[in-house]
């Protein structure tokens, strides 16, 4: 009996904050509060993600990482707060956003095929009854090829491994042809080859001038993959370029706890943290 996210009362989306969100940011959040029951999962968070960069949202389990992403997208209701995508409210920027939900959030026993799932990324463009054009069908196939899954198009999705499921979800986001890619734990429970393949695709997106924001939990790969980090533990702890923000002090402030200290020591030894 876990209570769902509660919208205490939909206020009109405006907020209190440190100035208006910059219009050139692909994703700017101001004063966002989300609660499950009477406990804030995310409290009064401001965030500004940069263009043409890969950003990671980092924090311990239950720190509100996924909640932040979902509330920003309007998948779950907010208590208060404002979200701007390229300077416009998120509701009017749907065409510019692609979303990769957590793999475990859907029933993989659903009766459908891989190519069908990828084509779902085109549903907004083709509408309810529009026919999928030849070009669009080819585009879906092409997106599958970009994640190395071209041969799997006619497969039933229940037959896929975890890594393959994640690639299919990424292909669906690619089919959306957006400017901002939001990914919820894209590397959770995937094999090393898939992780490499996904990172390559994301870096290519960045090279094309797109913005990528991912909820991420593996501290050891932050430096290798990302340009910008956002540290969260219900509150915003820090945000900025990896070089200056992904520091031991900030990680201590985000994670706390002895286990995390041990992890940090290991990371320091590995040279992942200064």
């Amino acid at each position: 009996m876990t209570p769902g996210p509660l919208s205490v009362a939909a206020q009109d989306g405006r907020l209190l904050d440190s100035g208006a969100p910059p219009p050139d940011s692909p994703l700017a959040i101001r004063g966002l509060t989300v609660s499950y029951g009477e406990r804030p999962a995310v409290f009064s968070v401001d965030a500004t993600f940069p263009a043409r960069a890969m950003s990671a949202i980092i924090g311990p389990n239950g720190a509100g990482k996924s909640t932040l992403l979902k509330a920003a997208l309007g998948v779950i209701p907010r208590v208060t707060g404002e979200v701007r995508v390229f300077g416009t409210p998120v509701e009017r920027a749907r065409d510019r956003i692609a979303y990769v939900p957590q793999r475990a959030s859907v029933d993989w026993d659903f009766p459908t095929t891989v190519i069908d799932v990828v084509q779902m990324g085109l549903y907004r463009k083709v509408g309810l009854l529009g026919r999928m054009s030849g070009a669009q069908t080819r585009r879906a196939q092409d997106c599958l090829a970009r994640v190395g899954m071209a041969d799997f198009a006619p497969r039933q999705i229940g037959q896929l491994s975890g890594g393959q499921q994640q690639r299919v979800f990424l292909a669906r986001a690619l089919a959306q042809d957006a400017d901002l890619y939001l990914l919820d734990e894209p590397f959770a429970g995937v094999d090393a080859a898939t992780e490499r393949a996904i990172v390559e695709v994301l870096k290519l997106l960045r090279a094309q001038g797109k913005a990528v924001v991912a909820v991420h939990h593996d501290l050891s790969t932050v430096r290798g993959y990302f340009d910008h980090v956002f540290l969260i533990n219900t509150r915003r702890i820090a945000e900025g370029p990896v070089a200056t923000t992904f520091t031991a002090a900030n990680l201590h402030a985000t994670y706390g706890g002895r286990l995390a200290v041990a992890q940090l020591d290991a990371l320091a030894l590995a040279g992942a943290v200064p």
Partner: peptide, 8 residues
């Protein structure tokens, strides 16, 4: 900071 949320 300015407050713009009317309910607040």
């Amino acid at each position: 900071d300015p407050i713009r949320e009317p309910f607040t």
